[in-house]
Write a protein that binds this DNA or RNA. Structure first.
Lengths: 194, 194
DNA sequence: ATGTCGCGAGAACGATCGTTCTCCGATGGT
DNA sequence: ACCATCGGAGAACGATCGTTCTCGCGACAT
């Protein structure tokens, strides 16, 4: 018999895989049951409703995503390379065979108008990403507007890569980011300082 | 009695309003019937299935969107101003009270994994936008990669404005676009040519 | 061994959805 | 005036979904 914690983990694992790959409304609780091996009764004891399961899926995805990005970026020490690493990580992400865009953008488009909690999760996730970028930009001594612009490039790359099924937008965004960083030179680009 | 053509128009009008504002799966055919005043029987004679109605909604939205953008941009004659006008038009669009992002990104996230035709419509729409930008960039004598980058900025602004509910991303994207245009100077920016 | 409790398997239930059908009134041609 | 045809309103149907309930088995305490 599975203890409560691992049952919860397996349920969320299956939910993440299914919701992300097929969309939320296209996946019934029966599909989560079949994929996870957790009975409906137990699913409903762990999560009082499908909406709660969806929200937990989004919360888990948010923290995993942030952790994966940060641990990749942290391998770089110079701040420009850390910023560039964000786009390299995006390239890696886009190259995964079952990449299907940003789960939060997708959920927002599907349920944002009908579920305020889903909309709030999307805002939270995007704000966290923006704040993370803002921290990197700030550490490089550049103005805050650069973080806004880099965030737009990243978001655009995420949806363009999803719709066209190619990771190339990550490279295009990285190039654009490089140019924008040069127009906002920071103290660690001495060759561009005047 | 409504002739077939105006019945079709009213049905599509109601479908566009409902699908865009609430999402596709959240809108039943009964809601389209109530909003349009077109009976179910007639709806199903005009569109053999909900999927066909959805696809027609997307096709109509695509051509309207392209027309609205182009007619706004065409008010400018200098090519830099035409490119900047793209982002000004986005600002206007984002400021509409019922703005809820790009119908194609939303539909792709909701149904792209389950309906190849919907995914194809999204690709078609995004490719048309990219091609349009590429034409503007080309006319300004700048390299094609700039069009890729501007497209990413625009896409990022579209989703960011939707999720945060503010039109500001259009201005941020416009600023970034200005910088990128300066790093790719064209023949109509003589003061920057060397 | 017996009784009890918790659990999984899956049936069941009520709601909703896409789609079709029935009924009936209106319309137009002769 | 009469008949045939069309269309609207909405009931009906079958499928699916979220959620709950029933049943029966196995574990564990005494």
């Amino acid at each position: 018999m599975l203890d409560q914690e691992t049952a919860r983990e397996r349920a969320l694992e299956a939910a993440e895989e299914l919701f992300y790959s097929r969309g939320i409304q296209a996946v019934g609780m029966d599909a989560v049951r079949n994929a996870s091996g957790i009975s409906l009764k137990r699913l409903y004891r762990l999560f009082p409703s499908k909406e709660e399961l969806v929200l937990e899926f989004l919360r888990q995805r948010d923290s995993r995503w942030q952790r994966a990005l940060a641990s990749y970026v942290d391998a770089q020490s110079r701040t420009e390379e850390r910023i560039a690493a964000v786009f390299d990580w995006l390239y890696k992400w886009f190259s995964e065979p079952d990449y299907r865009g940003c789960a939060f953008i997708n959920s927002f488009g599907e349920l944002g108008a009908v579920s305020p909690e889903v909309a709030e999760q999307a805002r939270h996730h995007k704000k966290a990403f923006h704040d993370y970028l803002a921290g990197l930009v700030r550490a490089s001594g550049r103005p805050a507007e650069l973080a806004d612009q880099l965030a737009l490039l990243a978001e655009g790359a995420i949806t363009t890569a999803a719709i066209f099924g190619t990771p190339e937008p990550a490279h295009q965004a990285r190039e654009a980011a490089r140019f924008l960083m040069h127009t906002h030179p920071g103290p660690d680009l001495p060759e561009l300082r005047r």
